[in-house]
Write a protein that binds this DNA or RNA. Sequence first.
RNA 1: GGCCCAUUCGUCUAGUGGUAAGGACGUCAGGUUUUCAUCCUGGUAACAGGAGUUCGAUUCUCCUAUGGGCUACCA
Length: 505
Amino acid sequence: MNQPIRVRFAPSPTGPLHIGGVRTALYNFLFAKKNNGAFILRIEDTDQTRLVEGATAYILDSLKWCGIMPDEGPEVGGDYGPYVQSERKEIYQKYIHELIASGHAYYAFDTQAEIEQKRASEKENGNANWQYDASTRMQMRNSLTLGENQTAELIASGASFTIRAKIEPNHTIVFTDIIRGKVSVNSEVLDDKVLFKSDGLPTYHFANIIDDHLMKISHVIRGEEWLPSTALHTLLYSFFGWDAPLFSHLPLILKPDGKGKLSKRDGDKMGFPVFPLNWQSADGETYTGFREQGYLPEAFINMLALLGWNPGTEQELFGLSELEEIFSLEKVNKSGARFDPDKTKWFQQQHLKTQSNATILNSIKYSLPPNQYTELQLESICGLMKERVVFANDIVREAPYFFTEINEYDTKTIEKKWKDNSAELLQALLSDFNQIGDFTAHNIEVCFHEFINKREIGLGQLMPVLRLSLTGLGNGPQIFEIAAVLGKSEVHKRIEKAISQISIA
RNA sequence: GGCCCAUUCGUCUAGUGGUAAGGACGUCAGGUUUUCAUCCUGGUAACAGGAGUUCGAUUCUCCUAUGGGCUACCA
């Protein structure tokens, strides 16, 4: 009775996976984990004309980056494979013939061009809604109108054909969507959908119900764009006498401004990524990924999880494993959510702050300029900077003074803070600094305070010019920490240099 | 055009047949800080409209509007 929870993410490899797809994968994954179920990856490549090289690898890499690992799928295998639809042709053949035998499907010999023509001429006659269905199928060339013998002959002669579902009008098809409740559709508005294409492969509608059934999928969690065709799917299940899985249709992710589905072009146009990873298409189009922009997968996932779902509490920061414990479909929203680049950055910043200095260092190590620092020193640089940047790879850009000589001094700060006595004060401070044995931030600070007390001057008179000397800038993290990282001799050098450079100017 | 789905601050959202309609991002104003960032405090701002049902509707129903999706031998 209590059947195991099995869900699938079923992308088609027609290009890079965009964040809507990643979110669908994520919700499937979270739902599976929450319910001790299995998360299955299935590649839906029945449209051979739209296959894009590298797309499957991209999907796999993206999921890996996010930490959404399939329990079954093309890479890991499983008991219900193969997990790539193009490798399941025979299976679909077998089932489509069952449907023909039971009278729920029929052969159709009309070519695509003929149908298009029909549609166009009907439109001219004022019928914009022509479709291949119960009201029109008897005017078309199919096994229903041609009869058994002629159909057999045509097939034997190698005529190309499709196989269509035979949908009878005037029943109400009702299914329950976990997120939306009851949805009903009159079969009248459904057309006789092509189930098998003339290339011998099934369409999505057919392959998906066969596979979901055979793979024992308990819950279908997919995008809202599938809601209208769920009526057809429900009917297909009933043709076979199978129980349909439970459906959940996720709201779409919309553009940040105005309405409309977020599309791949929006990102680079508006200055934010729409894809998890960088992508370059065969015709040279490139799209930037969240990963390459510097986003942490944790932040990306956190943002995505909250875009269309929330736990009902006021917590907003989550790790994957936390999400796995509290996710529920009932708390998924019904309406589309606009993607918010600002909030996405905020998530990134929050997650970066929680990372250890060593972890951050590790992530930017490869891009650091050559330097003399020890591991520990580099870690403290990361520690000093992580609260003031959004991305780890901003650290070097925001704090170049750790890695280069100071050749320029911020003019604004000079104008505001550099006074006639600044040089003399720095010089004196420097000789006190030289007395420090262990050049730690704490000792430097103590020394500094003793100095200003002795001189009876305010912090504001000396601290900014010290910062200016050491970093060339007017702002940054605590200056004693910076000094400690730079080391005594470097501090000495920099102060001497600043005194001579700035005084001249 | 037809069908389906949706509608709470600018955005993401919580929430209930009776609430001062809560939080977060953004924004604004203070505070902390040598500075910047962080952080803290406070302000700003919403139940699309109209009918019902009800003692009472943001909450239930219907209509309208708006938005979105689908309407292929694409998924």
